[in-house]
């Protein structure tokens, strides 16, 4: 499988004010090497404050790393050095899905408006209405006609997340970076959303970086995994191997503390 995105020795410092005039550089992300390959779901797991979101934001170009490069091979360019115009093209290919489906949609606009917008912005030259219906079907919001003129407040969390996914899929992306996409969604909807991710990989060949604190869902959905702790990758590899035979202490801890209805806490 060929690589789509590769992070090469990426560092990110944060500036912390320690006094009135004094500032200090604190390392946030430390020497991260990571790749997203074609047609795979790659997981990134770790506790809060570990830097998962920072890595995600650097991949989509919302944050610039202090050092290192992020290569995007289909365009043959370094994301950190892209011009505005190139970034615009890059963002049609690589998209971010947010954690909170309640704040990623504009409450004053309809479902149709949300999905139309990227199509209009990127000058889609087919029938926009048809495409919107098609996209709603793709994310299993059926019948699509019923959802077109609904507002976000009329939808459940799972439905909103699907609407957002439809919007993201409008531009036929190659990579989705999904930052905790199911954490704020009810348990009964979670399984079907994870199923949808698998379907996007298998049917549309989209690569997904799935970021979560829950190693159990990683085990269910991902092919490969990176375990992140305090800005560093402490373990990586095939999900099967990492889950059944974790090498790093932190990975072992994560597999132990993950909520599992079949293990009691006494």
């Amino acid at each position: 499988m060929s690589k789509l995105i590769e992070l090469i020795h990426v560092y990110k410092d944060f500036i912390v004010r320690t006094g009135l005039l004094r500032k200090e550089h604190r390392p946030g992300i430390w020497d991260v090497n990571m790749e997203i390959r074609e047609n795979e779901i790659v997981g990134m797991v770790g506790g809060s404050g570990g830097g998962k979101t920072v890595i995600a934001w650097m991949i989509v170009g919302l944050l610039k790393p202090t050092k290192g490069s992020i290569m995007y091979y289909p365009m043959g360019l370094d994301v950190t050095k892209m011009s505005k115009k190139e970034l615009r093209r890059y963002r049609a290919d690589v998209n971010l899905v947010f954690q909170d489906p309640y704040s990623s949609l504009d409450p004053t606009h309809t479902v149709k408006w949300h999905i139309e917008r990227p199509l209009k912005l990127y000058k889609y030259n087919g029938d926009i209405e048809e495409r919107v219906v098609e996209l709603l079907k793709e994310v299993s919001l059926s019948p699509p006609e019923e959802f077109l003129y609904k507002y976000p407040f009329q939808l459940s969390g799972g439905q909103r997340q699907r609407v957002y996914l439809a919007r993201v899929l409008a531009l036929n992306p190659k990579v989705l970076v999904a930052d905790e996409p199911v954490s704020n969604v009810d348990a009964s909807i979670r399984a079907s959303l994870l199923e949808l991710f698998k379907r996007l990989r298998d049917e549309k060949g989209i690569s997904i970086m799935y970021i979560t604190h829950d190693i159990a869902t990683i085990g269910y959905v991902a092919d490969r995994v990176y375990v992140v702790k305090q800005g560093r990758i402490v373990e990586e590899g095939d999900v099967e191997r990492v889950i059944t035979n974790p090498q790093n202490e932190y990975t072992k801890l994560l597999t132990k503390v993950v909520p599992n209805p079949y293990t009691r806490i006494d």
Partner: peptide, 24 residues
């Protein structure tokens, strides 16, 4: 049953999880 079994656990890799159709 559905709620309990639709939760992915560390051992549910490769298993099919039941889906609860629709929304409340």
């Amino acid at each position: 049953y559905l709620l309990l079994h639709s939760v992915p656990t560390i051992t549910s890799r490769g298993k099919k999880l039941p889906r609860i159709p629709g929304d409340f």
